[in-house]
Nucleic acid binder design. Structure first.
Lengths: 340, 340
DNA sequence: CTGTTAGCGCGTTCAA
DNA sequence: TTGAACGCGCTAACAG
């Protein structure tokens, strides 16, 4: 059995309350008793019960994080890094992290939120990969439960969020391709129910328009963010009668798949075809050839979002409720810049 | 404020106890009252407090998982997939998952375990990437706290674990290289304080010995499992006066780095130099060229380890306390098999 | 300075 | 069939 305040109280011969106070560092305790209590606690190996504290304080000091994944298996390096950022920041503030992985928009996902929120297992939740119609956001708002989102929603509702300006990111990278002389630029998009996907697509269109290039819907393909989907999208695009000379991709993982398809067709990436990604996951720099991409500092984002949430939970004023980060273009070889 | 049993009791005009029983599905409740209670609960949107239950039941229905990472940032696809396996299995059994990321063998890691175990935040923990001298194992054993390890320890102590036979895995893959005609086979090892690293190194040596090849310590380099470390290790090996014609690597992530270094030196992987990995992460099949590796089904392992832990927690008999899975060789192009 | 009382929300006696 | 009393472990308010 675990040792409790009661055990110490009996051992020392004082009340439980006194023990609690002595251990809690309150001033109104005789130095002598305090010493005895501390000593006994040490000796018995006392460690307070988190559960009991949670019940009494009506807080859990825990953050909930439901990772949206397509299919049960996933191994998007993106989420590992986000998780690390969130987790480390939470730890810095003495918060724990309760994690689940669920398919987006599934009954299981909904249940997971109920479990966390209604069950009062956590003090706040982090929502990532926001959707155009996002039941999670609606639910949390209606429940008036503390949360912070990484990503915006359709209507610019008033919940705290941090997002990366995907439109600018894609505009920049497509402009880069245009600068390199490309005129047939394809785009592998993410599913358009994801808000970030619509922003990035808008950036793609914007760049074309700014340069007076026509938008050709045959050059836009949607994939579910996996390497495999990128691979298949690329094969479709490269089989067109008039194939693109450049392919911008909505995320790095799919871009790796696009590169693989290009290789398979005997194309020299960066030469015969330009390819770009989005995210700048660690592997991007290590791809073959290194991937030109748009950098969003995922680890830092995890930290910042977590910090914002803790502020919300504690009722502290949040410096900025709506943060829009400007991503940066990272030019490597896959776009062929070095060959120009 | 959240609605509690008390609220329902007042609404219906019965005692809290009766409400508790009605909701708990006990038989000794008048059908009429049950209906009224259920109705009120529905109407008020009652959801039991997890914390209160935990305190009363003296269980948390939560599993702890401290991910060991080198440096705060990490994005090993390996852990994403392991996490997914663990998390989904936990959810199936109505368990939550409390996750932290800590540097192995650091004070922070130790503190994380204290927090989980001594603070009784979880009912059991999962230990992964076991070490030769593993303070976590010692601590948990001494505390007599439920845990299951993915990996063995030095002395075959009697805690429940699941492991993959890394010695066999490396023996097989090196044998494969030997079969292809290689005689100078280098090895990029993991840090040797990790038990799996010693097993794999043993497999490497075993294969050499079985074929009468000499073990050359200059051909063995240690890396910390990252892509970057693989990259550097490869450059060192390929700069040797008499460089290896094949490089076996302790994990896929480093193998990707090794491949990158080889490319950088203008070597045709699978032709000029053979390279193999270990893990079979999803990216392995999608590397360029596809990576010959040793497959350990990480997602399934996560599931199984989690299932074992839940059995231990529930005091159910664990079918097999010590599981050793045989990994399988996956031959792709990076080893050059297709060119032979 | 210290103990008593009270309560966080729930489940489990034991009587009635 | 129902309720009162009690305890899980801890902290807070109030006396003394």
């Amino acid at each position: 059995m675990a040792v409790t305040l009661k055990d110490i109280a009996q051992r020392v011969g004082v009340s439980v309350t006194t023990v609690s106070r002595a251990l809690g560092g309150y001033e109104d305790v005789a130095e002598a008793t305090r010493e005895k209590v501390l000593h006994a606690a040490e000796e018995l190996g006392y460690y307070p019960s988190a559960t009991a504290r949670q019940l009494q304080k009506r807080r859990t000091d825990t953050i909930g994080f439901v990772i949206p994944t397509f299919g049960p298996r996933f191994s998007d390096p993106y989420f590992s890094e986000l998780l690390a950022g969130i987790g480390n920041e939470a730890a810095r503030h003495n918060f724990d992290l309760l994690v689940s992985t669920r398919s987006p928009d599934s009954p299981e996902e909904e249940e997971a939120y109920h479990r966390l929120v209604d069950g009062r297992r956590v003090d706040g939740v982090l929502v990532v990969r926001t959707r155009i119609e996002d039941s999670r956001l609606a639910y949390l708002t209606q429940r008036n439960f503390p949360f912070v989102a990484f990503g915006r929603s359709q209507a610019n509702e008033d919940f705290p969020y941090l997002d990366v300006d995907g439109q600018k990111g894609l505009r920049d990278v497509v402009q880069h391709l245009i600068d390199l002389g490309h005129e047939r630029i394809a785009y592998v998009s993410a599913p358009l129910n994801l808000t970030f996907a619509t922003h990035r697509l808008a950036g793609y269109k914007q760049a074309l328009e700014e340069s007076g290039l026509a938008y050709d819907e045959n050059l836009v393909v949607v994939g579910y963010l996996t390497e495999e989907d990128g691979y298949q999208a690329a094969h479709r695009l490269l089989s067109l009668p008039n194939p693109p000379t450049a392919i911008a991709v909505a995320n790095d993982l799919m871009a790796l798949g696009v590169m693989r398809a290009a290789h398979e067709r005997g194309l020299n990436v960066g030469h015969d075809v330009a390819i770009t990604g989005f995210d700048d996951i660690p592997l991007a720099a290590h791809a073959h050839p290194p991937l030109t991409t748009v950098c969003q500092p995922i680890y830092d984002i995890g930290q910042r979002v977590c910090r914002m949430l803790i502020q919300v939970i504690k009722g502290e004023p949040v410096a900025e409720r709506h943060i829009l980060l400007a991503p940066t273009l990272v030019i490597r070889e896959s776009s062929g810049a070095t060959h120009q």
